[in-house]
Design a protein around this nucleic acid. Structure first.
Lengths: 130, 130
DNA sequence: TAACATCTGTTATAATATAACATTTTAACC
DNA sequence: GGTTAAAATGTTATATTATAACAGATGTTA
């Protein structure tokens, strides 16, 4: 899992599209965008997405079932992710805040569970939409 | 929206099932469980779920597309939710930690966005599964 | 080249969620 | 009580998101 760098053809195609996009992309919207490149089936997209997530190249925005490229180098292969989401324009911005990340990474639930990973999603209105 | 207390028939049926459940429930699993009570269609479930979420009676676990009853009085009608999720047994526990909630509620993104709401999901192995 | 893992292509289907419309119930007000 | 408006219901159909299962191709690595 999580190889250093080599991406397969389909993985590269999918990553390119996500990286070029200004906002989060949904799986089927990616699919429609790559049909000209010979990718025809959802499976092919979902497989690439799964691997890209494992590698930490992209993240899934759970509340939107959509995917964004990772812009942060310190999210530790998706173990500690935080996003700011505009409820009006749907913009998503990855938050990389060392203090926040440290605070949450060291947070321990009193019921004795040790956390390996977290995902935080903030919602509001972005500057433009306010 | 978000009336004080009165639940409609369907809302009450759905809430009852979720409250009785030990773990998170999925919409279609709720549906199968209430067909004996005359609820036959997904719409009826999703409508009840939407209202119950508005009222703060239940929460959606975004990473699982599942629903849990709210056990916390200080989640401020779902404006500030945090959960602990076991990756093995799928147990979900609502975290109500005043410090955490305060810290996150007052967190401000440097890019000028003011947050109205957040959802935090921690993943790990629960006591039993460790 | 043998062996093994990974990636690919494909068809089919499962699981999650919403649209749209007709009707009924409830709540609020006169 | 009668009127009205809002909320909830029932129903059919469909959209959206995601996985199963299988066969073949490609790519490491010994």
């Amino acid at each position: 899992m999580a190889q250093a760098q080599t991406l397969s053809r389909n993985q590269q195609i999918v990553l390119d599209i996500i990286e070029k996009s200004k906002g989060p992309l949904k799986a089927y919207s990616i699919l429609f965008n790559v049909q000209k490149k010979g990718i025809n089936a959802p499976q092919q997209i979902y497989r690439a997405l799964d691997k890209l997530i494992e590698m930490g190249k992209i993240h899934k925005i759970e509340s939107k079932n959509a995917f964004v490229a990772c812009r942060s180098s310190d999210c530790e292969i998706s173990k500690a992710t935080a996003f700011s989401i505009c409820e009006s324009c749907e913009m998503v911005d990855e938050i990389s805040d060392a203090k926040l990340s440290k605070y949450l990474s060291s947070f321990n639930h009193r019921k004795g569970m040790k956390f390996k990973r977290f995902n935080l999603e903030f919602f509001g209105l972005c500057k433009k939409c306010k």
